[in-house]
Structure formats: C-alpha cells, structure tokens
C-alpha cells in the first residue's frame, strides 16, 4: 500500500509536469523546431533524425540499467550471482559494434549534410539578394549594396528569394543567428564570412548576437522582416526617403558603443564601406589596439 501511494504521488506529479509543459509549449514558439525557411527546415529534420536513431543505443542502455539493477539487487534470490563472469569476447564485440553502426550512420549523415548545408553555398532559386552585415557595439548594420540603402537592427528580405549574407564585425567577435531561418555564423573583425538563407514564409523573425561581445550583448538583437516582393520594394523605397546618409562620418558615430538600439534606416551608403571596414584590420597599424592608445605603458 505504501509503495502504491508513492507511485501515485510520483505519477500525479509527472502528469502535472506534462500538462504544464504541454500547455506552455503549445503557446510558445520553438524557433529552431518551427523554421520558416528551407535551411532551418533541413537542419531541424536532421536534428530529429539524429535524435531518433540514437535510440538504438539509448534504449538498450536504459532497459539494461533498469533490468540489471532490479534483478541483481542484493537480497533478490532470483538474481543469479556469478562473480566469475567478467568477460566475453562475443558479447563485447556486439557492443563495440552497436555504437560503431550508429556512428557510421551519423558519419555518413555528417559528411553529406556538411556539404549540402554549407552556409557558404549559394541556394537554388531566383537571383539572390545580397546583404552585407556588420556587427557593431551593440547593434547590427545591414548594407544593401545593390539597393544602395542600409539599416540598423532590421533586415527586410523578399520571401522566396535566396539571400546571401556577407558577415563581418567592426568590433569584437560575435555570431549572426536568425534561428527560424537557419544556423549561425561568426562575425569577426577583418574577416568575411557568409551565410545563405531563404525565407519560405512572410513574417518577422528574431535574430540575435549569439556570442558574448561585451556589456550590451544581451540587447543586440535584430528583426528579419520577410516580406512580399512589393512590400520589400516599398521598404527599400522608404529607406531611400529616410534622409540620412551613411558616410565615413555618420558611420563613425554609428560605430560608437550603444545598446538596445531601435531600427534605423539610411537612404544612401558610401560605396565600398563594407570592404573598407574589413580592410581597416589588414593595415599594418591601426592605432586602436596598441597598448599606448589606452594609456597604459609598460
């Protein structure tokens, strides 16, 4: 009776947890599992597949753990005690083999998916939209070289069109991540990385800086606005009429540390701004990093 009471309590608790968790998850989106673009979708499918086939190792382990613990517990007369049973070549071969098979499958998946989902690989479809992304302290600058506009913390993209993000940083290293569209990519000063993504749905998708980058890091998020072709054109048009221009000087002001910035738009961008930002770090001396500049001498 006592045991039954305990089981009842535990079962009730578990049920309560399941109900609460279920209702919570029902009302809250899980970005990675509810992707809005093909890259994210493939990555999610891969995740679910890998987790499922790992059951060929997990299930035997859990079943044996429970069974052996119960059957061979001290004081159970039904469990046979055989202290000499301390090795068996055939059995051991089986459990070198089970994880080996599992890992072979994972290995093939790894190889294929690394090529198929290489973030640098252009996506099939219309002519891609080209966006240059600059991580700043602590906001994201998006430059549209073909449209001649730029924006802060907001990137509009046309739905169903591949987008080729080129990514760099004009401060410390951080990571560019819009989970509903697909995986992340590091943004690093003096480096140019790439991420090819495409939205399958319209909507506002959250993006973040995924790697710690200083005190404003937690607020360094952006919105990807996936829009119809005409809405996108309207967005570009609105930016073009926003008045302000992104020149050397305005960029210098923008690049100063600030946090929790609202979206902002630039009607024009100095050509080659993105390349200048990267090349700055290639110069033999930049002054910014030298010890003297911070007023500390040896």
């Amino acid at each position: 009776m006592k045991t039954r009471g305990k089981i009842l309590v535990v079962a009730t608790l578990l049920l309560a947890v399941v109900v609460l968790a279920g209702s919570y998850l029902h009302s809250h989106p899980i970005a990675v599992l509810q992707p809005a673009g093909q890259v994210g979708t493939k990555e999610r499918n891969l995740m679910i597949f890998t987790a499922s086939i790992s059951l060929i190792v997990v299930v035997p382990v859990f079943v044996m753990l429970g069974m052996f613990a119960w059957r061979y517990r001290e004081g159970n007369p039904r469990g046979r005690y055989d202290p000499k049973f301390e090795g068996n070549g055939r059995l051991e071969a089986v459990w070198w083999a089970i994880p080996a098979i599992f890992i072979t499958i994972i290995g093939v998946i790894t190889w294929n998916s690394s090529y198929a989902l290489d973030p640098f690989k252009p996506l099939q479809g219309n002519k891609p939209l080209h966006i240059q992304v600059v991580a700043l302290d602590w906001k994201w600058l998006f430059i549209y070289p073909e449209q001649g506009v730029a924006s802060v913390n907001e990137a509009a993209i046309p739905v169903g069109t591949p987008v080729d993000f080129e990514i760099t940083s004009d401060t410390v290293m951080t990571s560019f991540w819009a989970p509903q569209l697909g995986g992340q990519m590091y943004a690093m000063p003096g480096m140019n990385t790439q991420e090819n993504l495409m939205a399958a749905k319209t909507g506002d998708f959250r993006g973040v800086a995924a790697n710690i980058s200083g005190s404003g890091f937690a607020g360094m998020s952006f919105t990807v606005k996936s829009q119809s072709q005409s809405d996108f054109k309207a967005w570009v048009g609105a930016a073009q009429h926003s008045g302000s221009k992104l020149t050397d000087f305005t960029y210098m002001n923008l690049a100063r540390p600030s946090s929790n910035n609202k979206a902002a738009y630039y009607a024009a961008v100095q050509p080659d701004l993105y390349d200048t930002i990267i090349m700055k770090y290639m110069m033999p001396t930049d002054g910014g990093d030298s010890v003297d500049a911070v007023g500390v001498s040896f």
Partner: peptide, 14 residues
Amino acid sequence: VMMSVPAIDYQVHN
C-alpha cells in the same frame, strides 16, 4: 552526438 553534426550545431551552438 547531435551537435557533432555541423549542420545541427549551427542551430544550437552558443
């Protein structure tokens, strides 16, 4: 093991 697949890692790293 899931994260050892790079394409999955992109979505859960950090």
